[in-house]
Design a protein around this nucleic acid. Structure first.
Length: 271
DNA sequence: ATGGTGGGCCACCCA
């Protein structure tokens, strides 16, 4: 039995529902995690997902900013919508996939939108960066106390951090740029160790090879300059590592008309 | 060093 999971920061689900439709028709993942949906739950385009063959959905949205959702061909049960840092931001939703759809053991799937962190990489002067660091600390603490990764589980989403040197177009130039600073990378490492989690993309792509999932809107020619970062991730519990059966970044979607600045990441499982 | 481009939504905030 094969299961395909995708994650995509869509930067407004209502504006880009046609791009999502194209992606779902071409790749047909069983489950799609979305971030930056930017709408209230009542405004989420459920009918479009139904028509595309995704009758199940779990939504945690808010007006204008942030917002996460999971659309699925397979039944879902919502288990959590956690508010990190007591801010009430819609940055997390968790579901379970039934054991019958996941090789005999139910899988918990957590979809995250980690705060971007603003421009200045100093928590003393930039409250957004302080929030990002606190969010990461709380993720690690919560994973440890709740033992989130101790049985079949996946965390996916826009983590807004590119941890490896080859996850950015220029490691040295980005050491002081939010998304690749050592303090963030260390905290994300702590989150990964708290699972412990396996980075599904890097399970298949060696660390020597550059890999990006985001390219800024501000580049004159994103493809030519190729100044990307790997901000979007799928991590799996140790128990699911032997079930990993491939991973892919849909780079070409960055070149579609009116694209998101992020592209989808796909991970295949064989149960 | 700077400013470059997007989205939500109506004065800016956020990325």
């Amino acid at each position: 039995m094969r299961l395909t999971l995708a994650t995509w920061n869509i930067n407004s689900i209502r504006l880009r529902i046609d791009l999502v439709a194209r992606f779902l028709r071409e790749q047909a993942p069983h489950v799609l995690c979305l971030q930056e949906t930017k709408c209230r739950d009542s405004e989420f385009p459920l009918a479009a997902f139904h028509m595309l063959g995704y009758p199940y959905a779990a939504i945690n949205g808010q007006k204008g900013y942030h917002g996460v959702a999971i659309a699925s061909k397979l039944p879902l049960t919502v288990i959590d919508r956690r508010s990190f840092c007591e801010k009430g931001d819609a940055r997390h939703i968790a579901v379970t996939l039934a054991a019958s759809d996941a090789g005999g053991h139910a899988i918990a799937l957590h979809n995250f939108y980690v705060p971007s962190g603003g421009d200045e990489p100093d928590p003393a002067v930039n409250p957004k960066f302080a929030h990002k660091l606190a969010f990461l600390d709380e993720m690690a603490e919560w994973m440890t106390t709740e033992r989130i990764g101790s049985s079949g589980a996946i965390i996916a989403g826009d983590f807004n951090i590119a941890p490896l040197e080859t996850d950015v177009w220029n490691h040295k130039a980005l050491l002081r740029v939010v998304s690749h600073t050592p303090v963030e990378v260390e905290k994300l490492d702590s989150v990964r160790e708290a699972g412990p989690w396996v980075d599904a993309l890097r399970h298949f792509v060696p660390p020597e090879k550059s890999l990006y999932t985001w390219w800024s809107y501000r580049a004159r020619d994103w493809e030519k300059s190729d100044r990307g970062r790997r901000l979007d991730h799928v991590w799996v519990s140790e128990s699911l590592k032997p079930r990993l059966d491939g991973a892919r970044v849909i780079r070409e979607s960055r070149g579609w008309e009116r694209p998101s600045d992020h592209v989808p990441v796909l991970v295949h499982f064989d149960f």
